[in-house]
Amino acid sequence: MRIRLNDRMVEVDAAPDTPLLWVLRDHLNLRGTKFGCGRALCGACTVHLDGAAVRSCSVPLAAVGGRAVTTVEGLSANRRHAVQRAWIELDVPQCGYCQSGQIMSAAALLAANPAPSDADIDAAMAGNICRCGTYVRIRRAIHRAAELLRGGE
């Protein structure tokens, strides 16, 4: 099976029922996408399918079809995406395990809504759990990323 992954076509040799999460991690060695719950409850495995945030633990390989998969590794070269820059500027991560998922959710939010309100952020980020409690900084960093996207410094 072939999928479109981070702007290239890749061949995958996995059973069609294999969740995209494990295809990425075990078959394609893209380990930035994390396993947290296996049931789309925590958001650690968030990736983009055609730009929309999805929980890769609950998307079987067979359901990917021709849609473009973007993982945290494909978000930018050299951490240049505005969300990554804001995350670095505010030192958002603590343990860091959930952060790939947080970043992918935030990036999808900003792509759809370049100037989100706190309520928009809450709604978009409620599916991403962080046990270290980085929520306060995540909210601030999303506003900062929005500013960076608008060309502010």
Binding site: R31, G32, T71, Q84, W87, I88, D91, Q99, I103
Partner: peptide, 15 residues
């Protein structure tokens, strides 16, 4: 700045 932040925003941090 934390030394571990860059690796934790691009998926390269190894758990």
């Amino acid at each position: 700045p934390r030394t571990d932040t860059p690796a934790k925003v691009d998926g390269s941090a190894v758990f």
